[in-house]
């Protein structure tokens, strides 16, 4: 039975990797088709970009009217771009289901939760990222993140399949704990959200730069997919919401980890390298939330702090697992 499940799991993970690759290609096509498309006129423009006067403010909406249009959308391009976007999202949903099957069968094969080594961390983490993304597309319409998210998934899953793969093996007794299960699953979901938040922050920085540049040169055409995403301000808000969701969850995950450590090793907190970096990530994201409320640190600076936080999170997963010693070294390859 174990063999069958393990086999199923491997096939599902391969298939999911291929499906996400197709989804990524669809999103590439979405961007390519949008090459000639102009900025979306109905979305909010940041105040800084609004020249007073000709663009009226609609008082019931608090929104700013259309920016000047440099050309007319080719309806075919628009339709095609959108169709590829939808195909990409559909494939992402399919990939999610297949990957979920892969993670589940991996767990069934091993008779335990599927996060005993780096390979399992990677596939479970990708599942968390794709779940977070799909939920957020439903809630906040963030399909414009599709290319970045699928690109990330393909990269990590590819790495998992090609480099990190390990056959099924049991866990050491210290890892048989409900607290650990809660700890890792909440950390995985928080990590998925941090990933989406970091990708949104990257897009925010790119979009913001475009807007600042374009503000100085109103004559330049505003075409291409990036001009069809929400404004920098709106992306920033969404990035904040995603981080605001992730941070309490991360706090909870760290707490469960501490409780588990108490049961397993007789201390809540021992400054083991993995614990140190979980703490650093926590402090970095607390700094991000602070930065957003500190004069002079909003916007770009805060986004960089968020990315810094994400870097510390990644380092904990990759750096410490590879080079680290300490009690958590089960997580090694």
């Amino acid at each position: 039975m174990t063999e069958t499940y393990a086999h199923l799991s491997n096939n599902a993970v391969y298939s999911a990797t291929i499906i996400f690759t197709l989804a990524m290609l669809a999103h590439v096509a979405e961007w390519a088709m949008a090459h000639q498309l102009v900025a979306v006129p109905t979305r909010t423009e940041p105040r800084a970009l609004v020249a007073a006067g000709d663009r009226g403010v609609d008082p019931t909406q608090g929104r700013v009217g259309a920016p000047p249009v440099h050309g007319v959308d080719d309806v075919d391009d628009l339709e095609r771009s959108d169709r590829y976007g939808r195909i990409g999202f559909g494939l992402t949903c399919l990939g999610l289901v297949v990957l979920a099957a892969g993670v589940l069968t991996r767990g069934l094969a091993a008779h335990r939760v599927p996060w005993g080594n780096m390979y399992e961390f990677a596939i479970t983490g990708c599942l968390a990222v794709s779940v977070a993304y799909v939920i957020l597309v439903r809630g906040y319409a963030i399909r414009w993140l599709g290319l970045l998210v699928t690109g990330f998934l393909v990269m990590v899953l590819g790495l998992a399949v090609l480099v990190l793969y390990r056959p099924v093996s049991p866990l050491v007794p210290a890892l048989h704990s409900y607290w650990l299960m809660i700890h890792v699953s909440s950390a995985a979901v928080a990590g998925g959200a941090y990933t989406v938040g970091a990708l949104a922050s990257v897009l925010y920085l790119v979009r913001r730069r475009m807007e600042v540049k374009a503000a100085g040169h109103p004559e330049l055409p505003r075409t291409g997919f990036l001009w069809r995403t929400p404004t920098a301000e709106a992306i920033d808000r969404i990035a904040y919401r995603v981080h605001a969701f992730a941070f309490p969850l991360w706090t909870f995950a760290v707490m469960c980890g501490a409780i588990w450590a108490q049961y397993a090793w007789g201390r809540f907190w021992g400054w083991d390298p993995k614990e140190v970096w979980a703490f650093i990530t926590w402090v970095a994201y607390a700094a991000y939330l602070h930065a957003r409320a500190t004069a002079g640190w909003q916007g770009r600076a805060a986004a960089y702090v968020a990315l810094l936080g994400y870097a510390t999170f990644l380092f904990n997963f990759v750096g410490i697992n590879l080079f680290g010693s300490g009690l958590h070294s089960y997580a090694g390859m």
């Binding site: 400054w271 390298p273 140190v276 970096w277 650093i280 402090v283 700094a287 510390t312 680290g324």
Partner: peptide
């Protein structure tokens, strides 16, 4: 201070 705390934690992990 939050930044400093994060940075000061690093050597202890290395």
């Amino acid at each position: 201070l939050l930044f400093l705390l994060a940075i000061a934690s690093i050597p202890g992990s290395l």
